Amino acid sequence: MRCHRARSLARGLLAAATASLLAVFLMVPAAPAPAADAAAAVASPESLPTVQVNGVVWDQEVVGSTVYAVGSFDAARPAGSPEGQEEVPRANALAYDITTGELLDWAPTLNGLSTLS
């Protein structure tokens, strides 16, 4: 008889605890949905000055205010220059100033095997 009472008491306590937890979870308000303009706070409508290439940049590395870019291209032009104007030869590697977009004189020649030639 004691065993039956203990089980009944345990079941009753478990049911009460479950009901209490359920009531607490139901009373907690749901997290508010993010504001529609939350993404706007992350992005900026201002354009960044960057050089333009006649191919593809595969990787960039920023060191201080200098950006080193490598890829598959043979010419580049300063930020804001129209296509075909102010182009200078660049053999798959270039450097530019991240704050102004000015194309720098660094212009090594890469042979496609990740070695300078």
Rank of each mutant, 00 (worst) to 15 (best):
D97H: 04
L116W: 10
A30M: 09
E86Y: 12
L48Q: 13
S81R: 08
T66F: 00
A30E: 14
S47M: 13
G71M: 02
D105E: 14
Y96S: 00
W106Y: 13
V63Q: 08
P45H: 02
T66H: 00
S65Y: 06
V88T: 12
G12S: 13
S65K: 08
A91F: 03
M27L: 09
M27A: 12
G84H: 05
L9G: 05
S81L: 07
V63M: 05
R7S: 09
A75K: 04
L22P: 04
A93C: 05
G112I: 05
L14A: 13
S65W: 05
A38L: 09
A93T: 03
A16P: 00
R7L: 13
P78I: 07
S47C: 12
Q52C: 11
R5P: 02
S20V: 04
L116E: 13
P32K: 11
E46C: 05
S65P: 05
P49W: 03
P108V: 13
L104N: 12
T109Q: 03
D105P: 15
P32G: 05
A91M: 01
S114F: 09
R7T: 04
A40G: 06
L21W: 10
A95W: 00
E87Y: 04
Y68C: 01
P108S: 08
Y96L: 00
G64E: 07
A69I: 14
A79C: 01
W58N: 09
E46H: 11
L48R: 14
P32Q: 10
Q85S: 11
L9C: 14
A31K: 06
R11V: 06
L103G: 01
E102D: 14
G71A: 01
L21C: 11
